[in-house]
Simulated scan of single mutants.
Amino acid sequence: MKFRLRKQKKINRSRFVDFLLMALLFTVGAFMVLPLLFVISNAFKPLDEVFLYPPKFFVRHPTLNNFVDLYHLLSASWIPFTRYLFNTFFITAAGTAGHIFIASMAAYPLAKRKFPGKNILFSIVVMSLMFSTQVTAIPNFMTMSWLNLIDTYWAIIVPAFGMSLGLYLMKQFMEQIPDALLEAAQLDGCSEFRIYWSIVMPNVKPAWLTLTIFSFQSLWMISNEGASPGRLYLYSEQLKTIDYAMGQILAGGIARVGPSMAATLILISVPILIFVFAQSRIIETMSTSGMKE
């Protein structure tokens, strides 16, 4: 009996379809980048173009006067601008590093070890994701007051250590690591911390890089208005962050519209650069970190 083998047809998209897909992606990407281009354009607009009606999207006569005025305003402050900058960098760096370290160490036993109450603890972590920062503001303030940390850097840094999103994210990534890999490390005489630091953390690099972006962005833009951490915990002027200094400029009225737009560009530039750098590393790591039993 003879069987005829049918050749499998290879499905290829036409060049026209590829062109349509590229055009669609380009259109969506253009709409996504428009707000950033608008902020950059406004930062270099002279005052007459700022109040021009109808408004123009792109600047016609770019100028650096907004940045010069911003420099003079910050120089006239009785608290040096470098102090605001140091406060922001210290809070952001310490809070981000501590959050990643503590969240990953707590996620490791939840993901790869068995102990009584494990499922209950993880259920509590998942439930805590439903509560916003406004809901937990009063309990956090009472805790920081009891620890005598009010009006210190640690009043913002310590709560950042316990953000449940980081623990949840790290735990889900760590579950993908094969148990055979950890058992082989134990047979070689590795301690639990050595397994966590040398084996688990390199294999969940996409998770803690993503977590770095989220934590950095949330701590960098610590608002000093309303029920935000900067407003609740920091009272001394020398402990305020750069967002507070920029907020004072925005409160100056119409005359400070130009410097405020320059300040906005400076504020968002740092998180964007961090995101661009970390995003490339995440994509690179995800393409080479697949592991199977």
Rank of each mutant, 00 (worst) to 15 (best):
F173M: 08
I195W: 10
S228W: 01
S145V: 04
Q238F: 09
P229S: 07
I254N: 10
I199T: 12
L232C: 03
N140Q: 14
P206Q: 12
L167W: 08
G189Q: 04
G166V: 08
L209E: 09
G226I: 02
E237T: 06
S128A: 13
T210W: 07
W146C: 01
S228H: 05
L182F: 07
C190H: 04
I157D: 06
V200H: 00
I222Q: 09
S164W: 11
K171E: 14
P139G: 07
P229N: 06
D179V: 14
G166D: 03
S164I: 10
Q176G: 14
K205C: 02
V200P: 01
M174H: 03
L234I: 13
F216I: 04
G166S: 13
L165R: 11
A227V: 13
T241P: 08
A185V: 08
G247R: 02
M170E: 11
I213Q: 09
P139Q: 08
P206K: 14
L181G: 00
L169S: 05
L187G: 09
V204M: 09
K240V: 06
W146F: 13
F216R: 04
L129V: 05
I195D: 11
A155R: 00
T143F: 06
F173I: 15
L182H: 06
I157C: 09
L167H: 07
K205D: 00
V158Q: 04
G247K: 04
I156A: 01
Q176A: 14
D151E: 13
I249N: 00
Q134P: 09
L211I: 07
S215C: 14
M170Y: 13
Q217A: 10
M246R: 10
G162L: 05
Y235W: 08
T152E: 03
L234Q: 05
F131R: 15
I138W: 03
G253L: 04
V135T: 11
Q217H: 10
M163N: 14
Q172L: 15
I213S: 10
G189L: 04
P202H: 15
Y235P: 00
L250H: 09
W197F: 12
I249D: 02
L147M: 15
A245H: 01
L169M: 11
V200F: 01
Q172Y: 11
S218H: 08
M130P: 06
I177C: 05
D151K: 13
D243S: 05
I213G: 08
L149I: 01
L149K: 03
R194K: 14
R194S: 12
A160V: 00
L165Q: 15
F131G: 12
K205E: 01
V257Y: 08
E192L: 13
V257K: 12
L250G: 08
N148P: 11
S145G: 11
V135G: 05
F131A: 15
S228G: 05
A227C: 04
Y235D: 07
V135I: 09
R256I: 04
Y196D: 05
I157G: 06
L209Q: 08
Q134H: 12
P229R: 02
D188F: 01
K171C: 14
I222H: 03
Y168T: 05
T241D: 10
T152F: 02
M174T: 07
